[in-house]
Design a protein around this nucleic acid. Structure first.
Lengths: 143, 143
DNA sequence: AAATTAATTAAAGTTTACTTTAACTTTATA
DNA sequence: TATAAAGTTAAAGTAAACTTTAATTAATTT
């Protein structure tokens, strides 16, 4: 296959990624400091990000939105990259992930409650709106 | 109806609520300072919480777990309690809640991604486990 | 080649959400 | 009724997650 280059983007500078993910370059550097991501470097020492780094960052942001702390996210990443030499070690990690998966599933139920809270706020406004409209109509008729 | 008292609990001290909701009394005081809750007081100035305060606290905690900041939660509560005198005002508030409800709904999709991330970590471990077991069996046979 | 523009680091600063402390008062228990 | 346990406030302290700054170097544009 000769000379294929569909100009598909495969590397990113820090600010390209920052723009795309709507976070600041310093946040990305901060995550690196915390050991959550390890980009390559150019000859001149500037960070170069590949698809996998972008995917990793997206995962970090999802974890954050879920409510995991950066330390927790770091723990997961650490386990993912760990050399697993013993069945026991694997079992413990599996249990760790089972717990996290359950947390995620429980969270779904909470979202339902949250939605109910918000809908009930909205309905309260609806009722108030109908009252107001009734009053306004009365005023209009009597005018 | 004479003398009914099913000893059903209708008031709480700060530490009773704190214990039940698994937060510290100071957190509850902190939420009060932020204007998120307003308990009654005893003659001796101690806080007394009713069912509605308990419900309010639960809502605050749900909001927090969702990722709303205390300021955002305060904004919602403020709108709930606001005197709505104008249709316009109501419309703006409705739009506010519509946006929040959409956020909650979008979050459900993210939970699915999060779960996928975690499941894929787990499967990686599964594969590693099978490799390890195969190797161990070989060793056993050759021993 | 000169001048922007973007990147680098280390360190200090900021915000949010609490927690702790201290000095004191109220309520419950022995 | 004395003692202990729980509550009160204001103010200072803390941890996490960034952000800002400053001094410097690299890459891009004109």
């Amino acid at each position: 296959m000769a000379n294929r280059d569909y100009t598909a983007k495969t590397t990113y500078t820090i600010s390209e990624l920052a723009d795309e993910l709507e976070i600041s370059p310093s946040s990305i550097r901060f995550y690196e400091e915390k050991g959550l991501i390890n980009p390559q470097r150019t000859a001149g020492n500037q960070r170069v990000y590949l698809k996998k780094h972008r995917a990793r960052l997206k995962m970090i942001l999802r974890g954050k939105r879920f409510g995991f702390s950066l330390d927790e996210i770091g723990e997961m990443i650490g386990m993912e990259n760990m050399q697993m030499h013993e069945i026991d070690q694997i079992d413990r990690s599996q249990m760790f992930f089972d717990k996290k998966i359950e947390e995620v599933r429980n969270r779904r139920a909470e979202l339902d409650f949250m939605e109910k809270d918000l809908l009930s706020f909205k309905q309260k406004l609806d009722r108030r709106r109908m009252e107001l409209e009734a009053t306004d109509n009365k005023k209009l008729r009597s005018a």
